[in-house]
Design a protein around this nucleic acid. Sequence first.
DNA 1: CAACTTCCTTGCATCGTGGTAATGACGGGC
DNA 2: GCCCGTCATTACCACGATGCAAGGAAGTTG
Lengths: 336, 336
Amino acid sequence: MAVTLRDVAALAGVSPRSVSNVVNDFRYVSPAMQAKVRAALDELDYKPNLLARGLRQGRTGTIALLLPEITVAYFSELAHEIVERASQLGITVMIDETSGAPNRELALLEVAMRSSWVDGVLLSTLGLNGAALAGVKSDVPVVLLGERTAKSALDHVGIDNVRASRDAVQHLIDSGRHRIAAIGGSHAPSDMTSRLRLKGYRAALRAAGLPTEDYLYARTPKYRRGDAAVAVRALLAHPEPPDALFCFSDELAIGSLRELYEQGLRVPSDISVVGFDDIEESRFTTPSLTSISPDKHQIASTALETLMARIAGSDLRPRALQVGYQLLARESSTRQ
Amino acid sequence: MAVTLRDVAALAGVSPRSVSNVVNDFRYVSPAMQAKVRAALDELDYKPNLLARGLRQGRTGTIALLLPEITVAYFSELAHEIVERASQLGITVMIDETSGAPNRELALLEVAMRSSWVDGVLLSTLGLNGAALAGVKSDVPVVLLGERTAKSALDHVGIDNVRASRDAVQHLIDSGRHRIAAIGGSHAPSDMTSRLRLKGYRAALRAAGLPTEDYLYARTPKYRRGDAAVAVRALLAHPEPPDALFCFSDELAIGSLRELYEQGLRVPSDISVVGFDDIEESRFTTPSLTSISPDKHQIASTALETLMARIAGSDLRPRALQVGYQLLARESSTRQ
DNA sequence: CAACTTCCTTGCATCGTGGTAATGACGGGC
DNA sequence: GCCCGTCATTACCACGATGCAAGGAAGTTG
């Protein structure tokens, strides 16, 4: 069995409470006590039982990070940044995958938020709409990553999707493209992300005096590589096919590159492609992919600091925090 | 504050223990008690405190999955399979990133294994060598994913790396390649994976009566996309450059594709490329990537079942479990 | 020298559950 | 009417840690 405070106390010939004092660097501990207890601690190789400590203190030092799909590169890169930052702060992150299934998402959320298991929750959700979210009573603070769905009364951290999308499309216009298509997003009312990116896309077209044709927007069930092919084929089948694609995720853009290749089109000479997220993969595609790069590092820092403040008891009203982004122009939108 | 058994008991006018009985479906509970307690449970929206339960029962229903880097697609895909399977078994997975840093890896391992936080650990390690591992006393069962490092007395689940590598190289030989290079792996003694794959590579060459030239093996610091460029440049600079690359990971293969493109070589007409891991990305590269595809689904199932058996108290001696793989021939090794 | 402060150590209670076993209630068999 | 088995509920405590405050030793002050 595991070694407990009591075992250490017995060996050192002191009270369990004194051992606890040493372990926790209590102020008044004599050097003699220090020495005795440390020796016993080392000899038995004591490790505190974090369950018991958590139960007693009401804090576990652990937060949950709930992601829709961990295999989506954007999420895994974000997770990495968060784990990295959290470990600097001495916090353990419990990553959990909700698989998009809303019931599973809710179930996990309930467990995470109500079972005293974690001190707080970072929630990145696509599938969950505001109404469902509002129905969850939370005992622990929650910070949303990405877009706020509806009017949930939670902090959230993200970038300005509208402006970033406008920049991306503007970049295509500047490079001489006129018939720019947008790809990505579903009809689901909870898909706030695609709504905002579509808004930015249209704003850029209008600002340049270009028409916003309905046929130039192709929806996709999700944001993954495999979802792009159908959309691209539909766009290319039109009598006036696009000369540029603005994809709402890098994965969609990469799926599009593949489909364009199969259709015999060359990027960027025949058609430009721009993505969103700047996942690492995009630097290695042929051609390399132009993308909007959200500052993931800053998202992680900001989200964690906000969550920590809430856990410490901050009582400000919910805030919408925006972090920076960059447009990274690479080969896929740069004529050679 | 959170609702406890006591609160529910007070409302229902029964003892806390009776509430516990209802919550845990104890055998002898009268319908009247059932009704009373359920009503109170619903009214207060009771959720059990999992810390207290875990402390009392000595089981938490949670396992840890320790990965070197979550942004490596192979690991995130494996994590996905494991989370999926575990949730069917009613187990929560706590994914944690060790970042390869051996001290961090050890620290996390210690915490995970000694703090009663989790019932078991799935450990996928590259950086940690057998000696260090042997030094960790584990209070909970551990199952290794991937290659066993040295002679640690732990179960491990993986594929037959030697045979898989031989198959991959044989495939290149069959398609008419003679000067086949291998890319990937470091000098670290703990890098068992590259050692086994190199062994299979050489076995295939010997079996075909081809020489195994030293200059045709290029090491890389890690297995990521960005690590391939230097290796590829070195290989191409040789007076007799290779006509095929066998990369020890898909990410390396993808980095190689990129570098070959920059060097003006065409795949597969000028040079073939084969990877290892079959990450999703490999189906979308141009050209799509031939790869060894370990059965990740089966790895997840086998690893979880083995771990569960250990947790339940199985006392068999450590086993090396091998699961299947497939060679998926795609464009990067198929002359058009 | 009493009264008080400062330093160190410890006992007790408690966090929220669930295991163990005692207590009661009830009905059936003799 | 008594004993016993089955069913239902409960009291008590332990899981392993820490908050609280009491208690004692040592030193300081008036």
